[in-house]
Each structure stands twice: as C-alpha cells, then as structure tokens.
Design a protein around this nucleic acid. Structure first.
Lengths: 320, 320
DNA sequence: GGGCGCGACTGACACGTGTAACTTGCTCCC
DNA sequence: GGGAGCAAGTTACACGTGTCAGTCGCGCCC
C-alpha cells in the first residue's frame, strides 16, 4: 500500500487519519487516497486497537429478558448514529453468566459500553481501568448522570397518569409485570404514575401484578373494580392486552368497564378490540441522544441533555 | 506476567493455549496459572487477532426489518452457545447503507459471519479472502449448503397447511405480509404451504397481501370467502391478528368463518379472541445447530445437519 | 564415552498500526 | 553568507501475542 503509493508507511497513516500538526501536500494526499481506493485498503482494526489501546467499537450489553421491537428499533437507530460518527456499534446479547471473568470487555477493549443495567460502581471503575472511556448504565438506581433513560421511563408513567386524570378518572390502577427481569423498566414507570397521580392530588395507584395470561388478569380486574378503580395504566402493551383479555372474560368492555393505557404501541395494540391507547417513545431521538453522549465522551466535548418530555408521546385510541 | 511467574513469555503462551506438541511440566503450568489468576490477566484480543489474522468473534449481521422477540431469543441462545465454545458472539444491527465500504468485516476480522440475507456469491468470496473462515447466509435463494434456515421456514408452511388439511379444509388461503423487507422469510414459508397443499392434492393456496391493519385485512377476508376459502395460513402472528381484526369487522368469527393459523407464538396470540393457533420454532435448538456449524468450520470437524421437522411445532388453540 | 533422542524451556521474529524524533530541502531575514 | 524556521516526509520504536527454531540437561544405547 505504502509501496504502490510511492510514499512511506507513516505518510499513509497521517493522510488516512488526518493527523493534526502534520503537513501533507495535496499531491501526496491524492496519491495515497487513490492507491487506497484502488486497492480497497482498509486499516486493520486489530493493529490499530493494539497500538492505541482502545478500539472504535461501542459495545451494548443486552440483558437476558426478551427484547421486543422497541429495543430492536433503538439498536438499529443506534447503529446508524454511531456509523455516522465513525464508531462501530455492536451488541452482545446474553446472560452475564455467559461471560465468566468479565473477559469480554478486556477482550474487545471497547471505546464505550452501554448497558441497560447490572453495573455496580466497582464494575464501572474496573471498566474504566481497562481503558473504556465511558460506561453508561441506562437504567437502575444510582447517580443520575449515568442513568440516561431513567427520566424517560418515568415520563412514560406520568403521561399515562396525566391522560387518565384528564379524562376525569379519580382512582387509577397499575398493572405491574410478572417477569422479575423487567423490573428495571417497571419501577421507573410506576414511579412516574405515582408522581402523575400526586400531581393531580389523586390517591396512590392501586398496583396489581398481572401475568400475561387471561385468567390471572381477570383476578386483577375484579380486584380493581371492587376497589373503585375506573382506569388502569399497564406496564406495557402485552400486559395491557392481558388485562383486556381478563376484562373480556369478566364480561367487561373498555373503556366503559375500565379505561386502559399501555406502552410501546405494538402492532397488536392497534388491532385489539377495542384498539389500545398507548404511549410510544421516539427511539430515533433517544438513539441520537445516546450516540451524542458517547461521542462526546470519546472525542471530548459537551454532553447533551435529553428532554424526556419531548421523546414520549401518547397515541389515543378507543380503550380510553 | 511472565516475569512474576518466573518463566518466559513463550511458556506463558503455551500454557494458556494448551499448545499441542509442547511439553510443559506440571509445576510450571501451575505457577503460570496461579500468576494469571492473581493478576486477573486476560490476553489482549487485539494482539492475538493481529498475530493470528483471525479473531474469535462471530459476527451476526441483522437486517433492517423490525426484529421481534423470536429473533431476539435466537440471538440470546446463540450467544450462550458460542460462549460455551469459547467464541464471542456479537450482533451488528442496521442497514447495509451504514457500512459504506463493507469495512466492518475487514475491521473486525471475524472468525465467521452469520447473515440473514444479502450476500452475493462475490460478496462471500470477498469475505473469504479477508480471512473469514465461514460465511453463512441463513436465508435466500442460492445453493443449499449455506442457507441453513431455508428448510426450517419451509417446514413452518408445511406444518400450517398440513394442520388445516387434517382438519378437513379443502381450500386454503395465504396471508402474505405487506412489508417487502420480510420477503426472505415469507417466500420459503409460502413455498412450504404450497408444498403442503400439493402433498394432500389440494389446490394452490389463494394468496392475498395483508397489511397489519383491520380494514386492509377485511378486504382480503371478503375475497377469501367469496373464493370458497375456509382456512387461512398467515405469514406470522401479527398478520394473523390483522386477519382476525378484519374478520371481526366483517362480522365473522374464527374458526367458523375462517380457520386461522399464525407463526411465532407471540404473547398476544394467546390473548387474542379466539386464541390463535400458531407454529413455533425451538430457537434454542436452531441456535445450537448454527453454533455447531460455525464451530465445525472454525475448528475443523463434521458439519451437523439440522432436522427441520424437529424444531418446529404446532400450538393448537381456538382459532382452528 | 560419544552420539542421539527427548523433555522443558527460552530467544527472536512477525503481525499492522500510531506517533515521536529525526532528516532534508527550501525560503527568508539580518 | 549563514543560521532560523518551516513544509514535507522518513526512520524507528512500541503495542502484546503466536510460534519457529534453538538451547540445555539428562538418560540411554551401541
């Protein structure tokens, strides 16, 4: 490559990296770029990583709970955003048990790690020490600066509660998910509902755990009804569909029997009878924010602030 | 590391890699392993990749269509399987447009690449040349050896058709998806339905494209009814739910109006009214097969054969 | 007793890159 | 005329690993 461009290897490196404080004549630069193009040359990431001690890979650790299409969409957008910034976005699914010594991070030496949860402060420090520029745990308890999505999830709950309060409901229920693995999502959402109720001087929401199952949901429905609840916020659309099925089994109809609002805007939400009111998140905007945060940390720069209210939106349908 | 174990660097390498044809005394081996453990030493993947020209990363390229939880589950299982084999499984979502020069492969130098589709034979050859041991395009036209999931998808369609034929239906419809991006899944499934019909000497299935939308589905439902169709295979559960919504709008009920069978066994399928009969795939078994295929190619060995019939299963519910 | 094989280990090189330090013309100013 | 300064490159080293070729004792056999 350096040979056929007729320059030294160092010059090639300077040209390809636009190294500052290095002066390269236009002619030489063109020759190098030409040669690279005709040879289809791409620098070896391995060598570069070895030399600099840091790769341009952004690693996203997926938790072990079932990922739906919202997360899928978020990942796709993240990939696009990072590609635009010259970073390689890569996802590692699977349980923590699969990576015994935590050697994955040492092995990949990523520039940044995004995880939904699961980092102790010690774990974060260890990653830092291993050369990772930024570690972001999106959710979970702990100091705010690194929990980028916590406020967004709370906002979702607030929006659900506010919508039902606006419709005149005075006693609100919450359908909490059965699966313990999604608690990190459920807790902030429920906190948001609580905050929304408090804001309107409504009593605390009546929380029941609802498995994705018609009979289990029917039990909760009867409990809500006898407690005077007239509207329910569901953890997500799946749980909402279960509540809907439970109401059907109980001979009730939405919104007359119970008003119902979900989260995620699944395709199935639109097709339900009645069509499900739901809260949707602008995954593209969230992805752009996360990417900007990472890029700022890796390249240096101001970290952006996410306007949680701007990325969540209510989709009104027949169930409320 | 080598210093504190009191041996040469080469010896460390031999111990840690269990290099064949190298004899290491038990005492030395123990000293090295001890030192590695107390130091928390993990070899640098970058250096290793640079030296060997091949990393232990298995890269999975996701297409740009929305990934549901079946794919999510497949990825999780793949991750576990590969971890057990000492390989690192990593997923790259996003459109091909995001990786302009195809430099991702050159940059990562993965041991193997799994993709759902999108490789021309020339592209595969290029990857081979770049040092990738195995390239698997899971679906799509082309020579069989590398289309590992094609037969499984066909089997799904066969199973749908066989189930409806067994129930006595003589005229079968097919609800084809609206989204052009999922055609690689839809085509083999439809081929399977065709084969299943032919096997039972039934006429060709009556194919209609159905958007995930109640009104669009209602049009298709009326068309099927007037053509004498009594049962419909849907591309997946989402399309099936749309058909169900279309039937509701038309005043029909399943299975009396039309029997209906979907694919994927979404949580929503169980909650629909009536509950949806569907075909589900054992993603764990598929993942194990794919992992075994890759491991065989990377380490050398016999490539396993997937019994397509064993991994798909019918879930009978009220809609048929 | 000398050569040979063998177990156990070490020395040295190569992989492809980033970058600090150095060289070489050339211009410009006192 | 000569040194300072700068543009335009080059040389050389380091990153951490895998592995080939050697080295060094030591027992064994003819």
């Amino acid at each position: 490559m350096a040979r056929i461009a007729g320059v030294s290897r160092a010059t090639v490196s300077y040209v390809l990296n636009d190294t500052p404080r290095q002066t390269i004549s236009g002619a030489t630069r063109a020759r190098v770029l030409d040669a690279a193009a005709t040879l289809g040359y791409a620098p070896s990431a391995a060598a570069r990583t070895l030399r600099t001690g840091r790769s341009d890979v952004v690693l996203c650790l997926l938790p072990d709970w079932p990922i739906g299409q919202e997360v899928g969409s978020l990942l796709t957008h993240l990939s696009t955003e990072f590609a635009a910034a010259g970073l390689t976005f890569v996802v590692h699914p699977g349980t923590p048990a699969d990576r015994p010594g935590g050697d994955l991070w040492k092995a990949i030496t990523p520039a940044a790690v995004l995880a939904f949860t699961g980092f102790s402060d010690a774990g974060i420090a260890a990653l830092r020490a291993a050369g990772v520029a930024l570690v972001v745990a999106l959710l979970g308890p702990g100091p705010r600066p690194h929990r980028e999505l916590q406020a967004t999830q709370e906002r979702i709950g607030r929006l659900q509660a506010a919508h039902l309060a606006d419709a005149g409901h005075l006693r609100i229920g919450y359908a909490y998910p059965d699966d313990a693995r999604v608690r990190i999502f459920a807790e902030p959402r429920l906190d948001g509902v609580r905050a929304g109720c408090a804001e309107r001087a409504l009593p605390e929401p009546e929380v029941h755990t609802v498995a994705v199952d018609a009979e289990a949901a029917a039990v909760a429905v009867r409990a809500w009804r006898s407690a005077g609840v007239t509207a329910v916020c569901a953890y997500n659309d799946e749980v909402a569909l279960a509540v809907l099925a439970g109401m059907r089994d109980t001979g009730l109809d939405a919104p007359a029997g119970l008003a119902l609002v979900g989260v995620d805007d699944l395709p199935a939400a639109r097709l339900a009878a009645p069509a499900l009111t739901t809260v949707t998140t602008d995954q593209r905007a969230v992805a752009a924010h996360l990417a900007a945060t990472v890029v700022a940390a890796v390249r240096g720069g101001e970290r952006p602030v996410l306007d949680a209210a701007a990325v969540v939106r209510l989709v009104r349908r027949a169930s409320t």
